[in-house]
Deep mutational scan, measured.
Amino acid sequence: PQEEYKKRAKKALKKGDEDTAREALKRAGLSPDQAEEFIRRFL
């Protein structure tokens, strides 16, 4: 589910792994723009 992928993305970002985070967010159904926004907000 979407929440699970978002959790995964946050874990990846904590490790500084933005590529894995983007992949997880893409799987969560976010557009690339939404994924970038999510990452920017998190960092």
Rank of each mutant, 00 (worst) to 15 (best):
A12P: 01
A35D: 00
R41L: 09
G29F: 03
E18W: 15
K6F: 15
K6W: 14
E18M: 15
K14F: 11
E23V: 08
S31R: 06
K10Y: 14
D17V: 02
E18G: 07
R40I: 08
A28T: 04
D33C: 12
A35E: 05
E4S: 08
K26F: 11
R8H: 10
E18T: 14
T20G: 14
Q2D: 11
K14S: 13
Q2H: 11
E36I: 05
L13I: 05
D17K: 05
K14L: 15
D33L: 11
S31E: 06
R22W: 06
K26P: 01
L43R: 13
K15M: 14
E4D: 12
R8D: 10
D33G: 09
K7N: 12
K26I: 12
R40D: 05
A35W: 04
K7R: 13
L30G: 00
K26Y: 13
P32H: 11
L25I: 02
L13P: 01
K7Q: 13
E18Y: 15
K14Y: 11
L43A: 09
A35T: 12
Y5E: 10
F38R: 00
R27T: 08
K14T: 11
D33W: 09
E36K: 05
K11W: 08
A9K: 02
A28H: 03
A21T: 02
E4W: 13
E36V: 04
P1C: 14
E18H: 13
S31P: 06
D33R: 10
R27K: 13
P1T: 14
A21D: 00
S31L: 07
R41H: 10
K6N: 04
L30C: 08
L25M: 03
E4A: 09
E37I: 07
F38C: 07
R8C: 13
L43Q: 11
K15Q: 14
E36D: 12
A21G: 03
E18D: 07
F38H: 01
L25K: 00
K6T: 10
E3G: 07
D33T: 11
E23L: 08
Q34W: 04
A9I: 04
E4G: 07
D19A: 14
Y5Q: 08
A9F: 03
K7C: 12
